[in-house]
C-alpha cells in the first residue's frame, strides 16, 4: 500500500504528542490512528489493533444523547466532517468501558492538504465541564 500523504503523517505525529484523545480516520471513516489517550475511550491499544475498519471501531464507541439513548451516527461531529468536509463540535455522552456514562466534547476537523483534496478527518475529545 502507498504511504499516507504527509498531512496525515504529521497529524499522527502531532496526536502522538498530545495528552488529549485523538482519532484520525481516512476519508471513509476507517480509524487509521488513535493516540494513547484515546485508547482509554476505545478500551483497546493501537499497538494491538492497528488500523480498524469503520464497522469495527464504531461498535466499540457508544455515543448516547442526553437521555442516554443511542445517538445516530449522523449526529456525530466526525461523521459530519467526513460528509461535508467542515469542522464540527458537539457535547454528548459515551458509555465508558466501566459501563458508566460520561459527558465528552468532541471537535472534528477535515484534513485538507495542499492539493485541496480531502484526505481524512481528526476528532479531538475531552471530558466535558458537565462532569
Amino acid at each position: 500500500m502507498a504511504s499516507y500523504e504527509i498531512e496525515i503523517i504529521l497529524n499522527r505525529q502531532l496526536a502522538d504528542c498530545l495528552s488529549i484523545p485523538v482519532f484520525i480516520t481516512d476519508i471513509i471513516g476507517n480509524l487509521i490512528f488513535y493516540n494513547e489517550a484515546a485508547e482509554e475511550i476505545l478500551g483497546k491499544r493501537f499497538e494491538d489493533t492497528g488500523e480498524m475498519p469503520v464497522e469495527q471501531w464504531s461498535t466499540d464507541f457508544k455515543p448516547l444523547d442526553e437521555e442516554g439513548l443511542p445517538l445516530p451516527p449522523g449526529e456525530l461531529p466526525l461523521v459530519k466532517t467526513l460528509s461535508d468536509a467542515l469542522p464540527h463540535h458537539k457535547t454528548f455522552q459515551i458509555e465508558s468501558m466501566q459501563q458508566k456514562n460520561q459527558h465528552i466534547s468532541v471537535t472534528s476537523y477535515p484534513i485538507i492538504g495542499r492539493t485541496g483534496k480531502m484526505l481524512g478527518a481528526v476528532a479531538i475529545f475531552w471530558k466535558s465541564k458537565k462532569e
Binding site: M1, I6, L10, Q13
Partner: peptide, 16 residues
C-alpha cells in the same frame, strides 16, 4: 519529525 521519530511502517513514512 515527531515524538515517534521514524515510524517503520512504510505507510507512515514520508518519502517512502
Amino acid at each position: 519529525l515527531g515524538k515517534s521519530a521514524i515510524i517503520s511502517d512504510s505507510k507512515w513514512l514520508s518519502g517512502f
